[in-house]
Amino acid sequence: MDTAFCPTCQVIQPTTGNVDYFRLFSLQFSFSLAVEQLEENYQSLQRQFHPDRFASRSATERRLSLEHVTRINQAYQTIRDPLLRSEYLLERLGYRVADPGQSEPQDPAFLMEVMEQREALEAVDLSAAGAAQQLGRMREETERCLEQDEAQLARLFASCLPAEAGREAVCAPELRQQIVRVNHRLRYHRRFLEALDQAEENISEQGV
């Protein structure tokens, strides 16, 4: 954030186009997160750019401080969340997950697994006595899967990213393909967790 304030007059400057979210929080470009450092640097940036501090300044400065805070928040949300973090890292490696229409190599065995999970959830009788326990077991299993996905991502990203800051990240195509695959698993598992949330909500509504 060295360029956020004018070095001579100390007046807040516009946000620059393409800032690296990791660099923003002085973090290493990595999937494994130094959570304490992120929290600390997030708090300190928040304080530095908080609109209250610019309340007596010009309209332009007030607007700029808001721009900075918005970007800091967006960066924070992205890095905090494992799925968004993984997709951001992939994007920095030149792969955009959200590009629609890009042909993906399908993994039929995994898709079958997803389908079976979904069907098992659909088969749960939400009005039955043991439904909550059944959903609880599914949740535990899904959370274990998520942990595995994240551990794998940490390992895979670590083997393709140089540790030093300042050097462009590189990743062999086969390795990136592997990362993309695990990233997709993570997304499917997250989606399933959302479906479980929904089902649990339906149970509690029935209970009322």
Binding site: A98, Q106, P108, V114, V180
Partner: peptide
């Protein structure tokens, strides 16, 4: 035919 849309987590049989 089992296909998925990994970008959004959809699955279709």
């Amino acid at each position: 035919g089992m296909v998925g849309a990994p970008a959004c987590g959809d699955v279709m049989k």
